[in-house]
Design a protein around this nucleic acid. Structure first.
Lengths: 128, 128
DNA sequence: GCTTTATATTTAGTTATGCTAAGTATTATA
DNA sequence: TATAATACTTAGCATAACTAAATATAAAGC
């Protein structure tokens, strides 16, 4: 296996962008599901498309978020009915936001806005 | 020791706000030091005041960030000269941002703005 | 029929980073 | 000489995103 791309630590910029996601991803998944129910794979595509490629989640990132949200009662899941004679597809689990999930989403959006406003303020003003 | 306040897991809202900080704190510390050099304890106060209390770091949170930034060459540190006959204080280490640190800060601010814009867009539009 | 590709879910193990909590040390004040 | 305020250090934990691989079905090409 010649020329294996050197693993090493990620570039500073990449590591920073990665850390920024923490916490916000959960809110964004809830936000997408508030629009309409989706299965996991579709959520990855919607997130990638809706963010201009900035949020390109791997399965190993998204599914644990979904399981956590389901454990917390924020979403429910159901295996999609594949129908009897219709066009068959690989089985997929469809996630739907609950009333509790919508409440949590509201809180998280408020917290996000407060946090973002705070960061933007600190980034603009001169050394207080 | 009666009535020890039950530790338990933090409230959902608290956990969310906590996670949001990840990654952004490093940028904010650099931003404060870009304004003027400070020692650790002062940075905690500046952050708390500048954020309206939202960012209330413990020493155990800030100092590891400073050590990391120094290891990366983004800041330098020097024990403050306490002077010979002046008003004596407890020894303090003053941190100063480097040219490399200013460059990193610029990248991180750009990454933050891109990320925040992306999140805000996703939070507004209807299910794409 | 067999292989490849795209779709789709699951899970094991690693890493990064903020947290709690405690310890060390100096100076000023009572 | 206690006590509090200041100031830095460090050990160990929790969370959450990451890498990477395993599993499985259906469609398309040969």
């Amino acid at each position: 296996m010649p020329n294996t791309p050197q693993a090493g630590p990620p570039a500073p910029g990449a590591r920073f962008a990665q850390q920024l996601k923490k916490g916000a991803l959960e809110m964004l998944v809830l936000q997408l599901l508030a629009g309409r129910p989706s299965h996991g794979y579709e959520l990855i595509q919607r997130l990638r498309a809706g963010s201009g490629g900035l949020l390109d989640l791997k399965e190993g990132t998204l599914y644990p978020i979904l399981y956590r949200l389901e454990d917390d009662g924020c979403i429910t899941s159901a295996w999609q009915d594949l129908g009897a004679g219709g066009a068959r597809r690989t089985p997929r689990k469809v996630y739907t936001i609950t009333a509790a999930g919508r409440a949590v989403l509201g809180e998280e959006k408020a917290a996000w806005q407060a946090f973002a406003a705070c960061v933007n303020t600190l980034c603009k003003e001169d050394a207080p």
